[in-house]
Simulated scan of single mutants.
Amino acid sequence: MDSEGLPPAFTLADAEVRGLRKDQVYAMLSSGGIERVGRGVYLRPEAIDPAFAPLAAVTAVRPDATLCLTSALVHHGLSDAIAFDSDIAIPRGVRRSAGFAHIAWHSFDRATFTVGREHLQIAEHTTVAIYSPERTIVDCFRLIHREGDDVAHGALRRWLRRRGNSPSALMDVAAYFPPAESRLRRALEVLL
């Protein structure tokens, strides 16, 4: 009994599709071949970068789960924060999956949920979603009351220092979020 044919993060249903019975999954769990990371969700620890383990686990249950806010800033190199929880967005009105540790859930409007949403392959046959640097900065300005002034402005300064980034691309994303657009426009006027 081997976990090699399983994706890096999987559910019991995924294991059953691949011909494994529940007792075989539990045997792999007790032998240390896999880890339980959520209710009915398992992880092959050697098969995935630990930085993406929480997101991959949630994605096994909620394919629309998307890395956002501080966690996305760190991934894009726009923050040096060391987050205790992974920030994960789901569409507003969707039930949050229970049993996951170290996940900070965020509900984003369905109408704008896919704006700036990108896919990243983190292992063979495993793709997760993350918001683009531009969308993440806009979200930080949109939620500045929760994320903090220093986080939003620090990320914007780092992003502007990078070669090839265009304020117009950032404003194109911000156009979907009018309250953030005005805040971001003022910040750009000061920094540029």
Rank of each mutant, 00 (worst) to 15 (best):
R157P: 00
H102C: 11
R161C: 11
C68W: 00
L120C: 10
T59Y: 00
S107C: 06
E181C: 11
I103V: 15
I90N: 00
A175M: 12
S168D: 15
D87H: 14
W159M: 02
V94C: 05
T126Y: 04
H75V: 10
G5E: 11
G164M: 01
T112W: 01
H125M: 12
E4M: 13
F141P: 00
V25D: 02
W105A: 01
I144H: 03
R62G: 00
V25Y: 01
R183L: 15
L69R: 01
A9H: 03
A72R: 06
A57R: 00
P8A: 15
V25M: 05
G93Y: 00
G77M: 11
E118V: 09
P50S: 14
F108Y: 12
S182K: 14
F52H: 09
T11D: 06
A53S: 15
L55Q: 00
E4G: 13
L191G: 04
Y26T: 09
H145W: 11
V128L: 06
A104C: 12
V115L: 12
R183K: 15
R157V: 09
Y42F: 15
G164K: 02
L184H: 03
S166T: 11
A60H: 08
M1I: 13
P178M: 04
L184A: 10
L156Q: 01
S30W: 11
H145K: 12
L120A: 10
V115E: 09
N165Y: 00
P50L: 12
G116L: 07
I82M: 14
V58N: 06
R158C: 04
F100V: 03
P45Y: 02
A51L: 09
E16N: 10
R161S: 15
D64C: 04
D109Y: 08
E46A: 14
T127I: 14
R142N: 10
A51T: 09
R18N: 10
